[in-house]
Design a protein around this nucleic acid. Structure first.
Length: 274
DNA sequence: AGGGTGACCTGTCGGC
DNA sequence: TGCCGACAGGTCACCC
């Protein structure tokens, strides 16, 4: 479910409400992708300073240390003054003075990891290799020249480079197909072979696709709901994702599907040039 | 070091 | 209706 837009929408839906809250109790359910790396009981008494996002990770800053949350493939967060009793797929809970934050994650590819600081080993193991933030402007953000240079270095197919997350973060399987469509680039082109203008168009397309999805409230196709429980955001009309065999919304040519690294890729053979 | 593959885990959907 | 395989939004450890 979550790519960058869904994670960002989730963040915005509870960041202000949890800020300043004191942790009363923390609970773990079934194991997630990694252990918390800290005694869960020791989180009681901490104060939540705020919630940031890095790639698809949410960083819950505490007055001492921080929690890194990842939603994996199937995770979602809920934050409310009171929640119903936890279900079988609720695997982490932070009860605070301002409400309870709960992670629901059937597949358990998600994670909650404690780090004493953002630059400590536990945090850097997860954040250390992440690429540029696509929605951040200026130095330290999604710098066009750095993106173009990064692409030049990669012999792999462009779709895989976008998914890898070490050049630019947050582009998942759906938005990778969508961004490449918007840029008119065939997903099978070798990254290094993209001309500078085409790379620039892709740079713009990535920002547009992600920003639009954030503005629409996180639009990934199925069952996304923000941490305030708002659901039903299916507005993103996918141009290509999941539309194999259907006519391209621009030119009418049937959309094609192929598999790259065991993941489905969709493209328009007419609009997207090799 | 970059690139490719399998692994993690559960739910859902389509076909027989 | 029941069963079974394919597939799903992510990413890492591991090989070459």
């Amino acid at each position: 479910m979550p790519e960058l837009p869904e994670v960002e929408v989730t963040r915005m839906s509870f960041a202000a409400r949890i800020e300043g809250a004191r942790v009363l109790e923390a609970r773990l359910g079934k194991p997630l992708r990694w252990p918390l790396g800290y005694p869960v009981g020791a989180l009681a008494g901490r104060t939540v300073r705020g919630v940031r996002r890095r790639g698809k990770y949410l960083l819950l800053d505490l007055d001492q240390g921080l929690l890194l949350l990842h939603l994996g493939m199937s995770g979602s967060l809920n934050f409310a003054p009171a929640l119903p009793p936890p279900g079988v797929h609720d695997h982490f809970e932070l009860v605070t003075t301002q409400g309870t934050l709960r992670l629901h994650d059937p597949r358990r590819f998600g994670a909650v990891v404690y780090a004493s600081a953002e630059d400590d080993e536990a945090a850097q193991k997860l954040l250390g290799r992440l690429g540029m933030e696509p929605l951040t402007e200026g130095p330290g953000g999604f710098v066009l020249a750095a993106f173009q240079a990064g692409l030049k270095r990669r012999q792999t197919v462009i779709k895989q480079v976008l998914l890898a997350g070490d050049l630019v973060v947050g582009v998942g399987n759906i938005y990778a197909s969508e961004a490449l469509f918007l840029a008119g680039i065939r997903p099978t082109v070798r990254a290094a072979k993209l001309s500078r203008p085409r790379a620039a168009r892709l740079h713009t397309a990535i920002r547009e696709v992600l920003a639009r999805a954030v503005a629409k409230g996180g639009s990934t196709l199925r069952d996304f709901s923000s941490a305030s429980g708002e659901t039903g955001y299916f507005q993103l009309e996918a141009m290509v994702y999941g539309r194999a065999g259907q006519p391209c919304r621009v030119c009418g040519t049937p959309i094609k599907m192929l598999r790259q690294g065991q993941r489905a890729t969709f493209f328009c053979p007419q609009c997207q040039k090799p």
